[in-house]
Design a protein around this nucleic acid. Structure first.
Lengths: 336, 336
DNA sequence: ATAAAAAATGTAAACGTTTACATTAAAACA
DNA sequence: TGTTTTAATGTAAACGTTTACATTTTTTAT
């Protein structure tokens, strides 16, 4: 593999000059520049990213850290990040963490080994706030959808609270009085915020909440299924259910069918996320749409700006609005 | 950020000794080793991956290259790869390419800049075979699902041909005589192989094929939709349709409904991939299941072996079997 | 034509590691 | 005890770049 030395020798100049044309320095004669360019082509030379990174102290690589499970958001966010990152000459290294402890490890090792110039971390679990301490961190960090509002340069959070409130209100407008809630995984920030929204919507609608109307799931379809079985197996039955995500809502619909209940006539069910499956199930699921791709793009763009302009790092919190997608599972009439 | 020098000074030894404990060399006194370990902890030291990679000529990073669009396979394959790769101390850098030219660029730049010690490339487009020339390539390469059988160390391909044949035969067994086919994107290897399987199944079933029964889509739901509209708008109508992937099959089902045709009574529709949505649509889609996660794991494992054992690189072609998932869109009765 | 200023190029140190080789310390043997 | 063998540590070069500084070449002004 050709090195800068080979190019220099072959072009009859010093490596410094080659380096200068590589980095677009102004002070090099056009003729020399051309000759070197030609040699580079001939030798098929490409600078060693490791050597360059070592010298310049930056790897042109950004780390993306995900919780293990979340395969739904995953692909789209990566795709969003990649679009902007790639054309700025950066690469993405992805890692996933099994649990909070693992997350800290991966984060630290990525950072301390200087493998990344910046990081985008998605961490909906509410533990672990301290790792991101900005006083000792030297690279820009963007936190996605996390409970932590401090320590990162930018946090991007979807508006779980408003979204949940809105969709719950929608159910209230349908006349429901007993609205159930299926929690997501414990200690999950998204789930907690959605719960807050749900509660406040009930309060503002003067409905009393009751723990009999709640079930603790874990975001999986199966837990949504179990939730409905359990909720409807008691005297105080909900007439509508808001599941903290679509997967659970889908499981809930399944369970309702199993119990020979019509959705939405006998029980209305809504979710959150607007995953691609949501519009295909029967009945099509009313849910809150989360602009996942855009979130990825936003994160990528902001990080690039932080990295390139290395301007004043202003801690900023961005809240991404979500929007209600009315389909049929809430009781609204079919579209066309 | 602490360097090996800081550790050496602080522990009162030379950097060579520190390096030795870092790399687990046998020749270092236990007492010294302990002292150094302690210092490492204290200083929170972690070796600079760039410097190490530069010196060792390997980055402990593996490149994963995807075509831009394929967001379905994407997430699962990454996840599969990541599981094995991560515990072997490697990282994944993902890149996507818009088109074949771009693909070549990304491949070459990743490789030539020594950013990766190995690559996993997914390239279903049939162009571009030459870049992977193994004679001038120095890093292990695994090709996923590609037309190219030469140049890579290992190729992993899903058994499109057999799968397509099997599902087509299934339609034939239902008594269908006029079975339509919806092609995927042009020059796509998966699509072509599935077409081959379809053809051979027809032949073996003594059915004549007809270009009137074929439509050229591009793997999107929308193209499946248009396919059905077009196929059913002619005199020679199919009674069953095999779409080269599930997305198109779903579009096809949609279109059938639009035309007030019952699936499967009026027209049977089957797909390929078994994407998560397949079982939720109405009627649930009969399709071929592709073990995507397993393919990712397989690729990761093989690459690690290639990298670590650096044993004889034997060119191997692995074909991954797929299996028929019978649901209702083919005309089979409901399960339970 | 000559001196001064500006532009182009070269030299060498640095980035943080690993490792071959040289040196010193400890253990084994006589 | 002194010699030889073995184990532990140190020295310094190398990996492929970038860049401050020194040097040479070219241009401009006189």
């Amino acid at each position: 593999m050709a090195t800068i030395k080979d190019v220099a020798k072959s072009a009859g100049v010093s490596i410094a000059t080659v380096s200068r044309v590589l980095n677009g320095s102004a002070n090099v004669k056009q003729a020399t520049r051309d000759a070197i360019q030609r040699t580079i082509q001939e030798l098929n030379y490409m600078p060693n990213a490791l050597a360059r990174g070592l010298q310049k102290k930056q790897s042109k690589t950004i780390g993306v850290l995900f919780p293990d499970a979340t395969s739904y958001y995953f692909a789209e966010i990566i795709r969003g990040i990649n679009t902007c990152i790639q054309q700025a000459g950066y690469r993405i290294v992805v890692s996933s963490a099994h649990d909070a402890a693992d997350e800290a490890n991966v984060f630290l090792s990525l950072w301390k080994s200087q493998q990344v110039s910046g990081m985008i971390v998605m961490m909906p679990s509410t533990h672990n706030a301290t790792i991101f301490n900005s006083t000792q961190r030297s690279i820009p960090l963007i936190l996605l959808n996390t409970a932590i509002t401090d320590g990162a340069d930018i946090t991007i959070t979807i508006d779980n609270y408003q979204g949940a409130k809105e969709i719950t209100k929608h159910l209230i407008e349908h006349g429901h009085q007993a609205i159930g809630f299926i929690h997501g995984a414990p200690n999950n920030h998204d789930s907690e915020e959605r719960y807050r929204g749900y509660q406040d919507a009930l309060n503002e609608g003067n409905l009393t909440r009751s723990s009999h109307l709640e079930f603790h799931g874990n975001f999986t379809e199966n837990s949504g299924y179990r939730a409905v079985i359990s909720l409807l197996n008691q005297s105080e039955k909900p007439t509508a259910i808001f599941a903290a995500n679509d997967a659970m809502a889908i499981g809930a619909v399944e369970a309702a069918r199993q119990l020979s209940l019509q959705v939405p006539q006998d029980i209305a069910i809504v979710g959150f996320d607007d995953i691609s499956t949501a519009r295909y199930i029967n009945p099509p699921l009313t849910t809150m749409n989360v602009p996942v791709l855009e979130i990825g793009e936003m994160a990528g763009n902001h990080l690039i700006r932080l990295l390139e302009d290395n301007r004043q790092v202003v801690t900023r919190e961005i809240t991404v609005p979500v929007h209600l997608v009315v389909r049929e599972s809430c009781g609204c009439p079919k579209e066309k």
